[in-house]
Amino acid sequence: MNAPDTIPEVPEIPVDRTIDTSQMKVTDEVAISITAMNKWYGQFHVLRDINMTVNRGERIVVCGPSGSGKSTLIRCINRLEEHQSGQIVVDGTELTSDLKNIDKVRSEVGMVFQHFNLFPHLTILENCTLAPIWVRKVPRREAEETAMHFLEKVKIPEQALKYPGQLSGGQQQRVAIARSLCMRPRIMLFDEPTSALDPEMIKEVLDTMIQLAEEGMTMICVTHEMGFAQAVANRVIFMDQGQIVEQNEPREFFRNPKSERTKLFLSQILGH
């Protein structure tokens, strides 16, 4: 199948407010640097020669067809997956098999999953205070105040004493974001945060993510929400077959894709 000549328009992001870009500043400080990184699942070469640098304040959207390794890439950044060669340095800490480094990186990198992965046996508030209390050793009262602060920010403070099973998908995902934020991370990873949600719930989750971006959070998002990429990201990375095929600032990326693979992918994802 050949890539078409014209790329369809990127849809408007489904958020009814103007995005405040005043705090979105990319600094010179390096947050994540990945050099010549490779990963295999058995004989299968999932990630091939990945090189990328993320500066503090960047909002990066990673896209690509399924199986292209984009989830695996961001899962390597907090060592949910192990890489076999190359180097990943997060906030100055290199990820090796040293458990202490891994725990240090994990407590500074927040992660939001496609299926939320809230702890069903704990209330919303307990979900949010667990890690601060047990990992950061924050006193319970203080952890609860922080948790309520972030629950208010994602606009569900009234659900604090319910259990995850009582909330809608969109609410659960916002709790998951608040749970990560309670650890005061410096970097946030989003692994297809809206893929498991109904359209009206996608909106509320995107809204929360935009809010984060507006506050200057360093974010890497694996997502198919191209409207979000266009409006919020400062860089879009396209991956295919385990490698970075193309990256550019969003306007150029969508208007003027260079690679045939990118054109094909964009026409498919934006075409319908």
Partner: peptide
């Protein structure tokens, strides 16, 4: 996902077992 969520929050093996995995 429960293991991954516990890992991503920085809980070590025993804490994850005690607080997340075993209760469930």
């Amino acid at each position: 996902g429960q293991y991954e969520a516990a890992d991503s929050l920085g809980l070590d093996y025993w804490k994850a077992q005690r607080l997340i995995i075993m209760p469930q």
